[in-house]
Design a protein around this nucleic acid. Sequence first.
DNA 1: CGAATTTGACCGGC
DNA 2: GCCGGTCAAATTCG
Length: 215
Amino acid sequence: MVKEHLVQGKEFAVQLQSLLQQPLAHHNKSASPHDLILKILTCFTKALSSVTGSKDFSNEFRKKDKQVVKNRRGCYRGKRKALDSWTRETTTTEDEHAWRKYGQKERCYYRCSHKYDQECYATKQVERIKEEEPIIYRTKYFGHHVCKRPQMITTSREESKLQHSRDKSCALDWQDLIPDFSLEGVVSSYNDLNGLDMDNVGEFGDFHFEALEFS
DNA sequence: CGAATTTGACCGGC
DNA sequence: GCCGGTCAAATTCG
């Protein structure tokens, strides 16, 4: 399962490599660099979610965990890496996703409401950086949503997009993979991606999109 | 050891 | 009753 995704991802990467080595004139419209990048990313996402707890075994484990193991409070895997994270500074804490709040201090922690029903492990942290008149919140996002928002499932635009990705195992939404800069966010910025280490490939959410920076 | 982070329990509102 | 916020406890990292 994991291996297949990785092999497929590598295949796409090789295609992308050869594509980028060609002069622009030889690019055919069947596979654009963007398409290939999307495919690579979705393959990696699938592989990662398989490694870190996919539906296949998490349901069975969940039951056993409740009985045998005690609670798993505080079981986090190290501090969040700067990888696959970005910040946004706005006047609201709202965005297009459903979040469940937790945490108790000045800094609020949010996780996706669909963490368990759709295994969406995106999280965010919100802190006030300005108390006066225009209250500004700095929101740090970690990971990317894999949950389907109700409105998006039904839109025809979405369906055509899903059909476009021919492989059903790679049917992830492109817009869920990258931060949505078209929101009314004031300031958005990727964290520094320098000095990333690949030691924790299995760590959930460890996924970055440096490759998307090209144009 | 303390800060950071996450979870489960509980509780209140709709 | 379901959903989301609050609280307290648990775990891991530095």
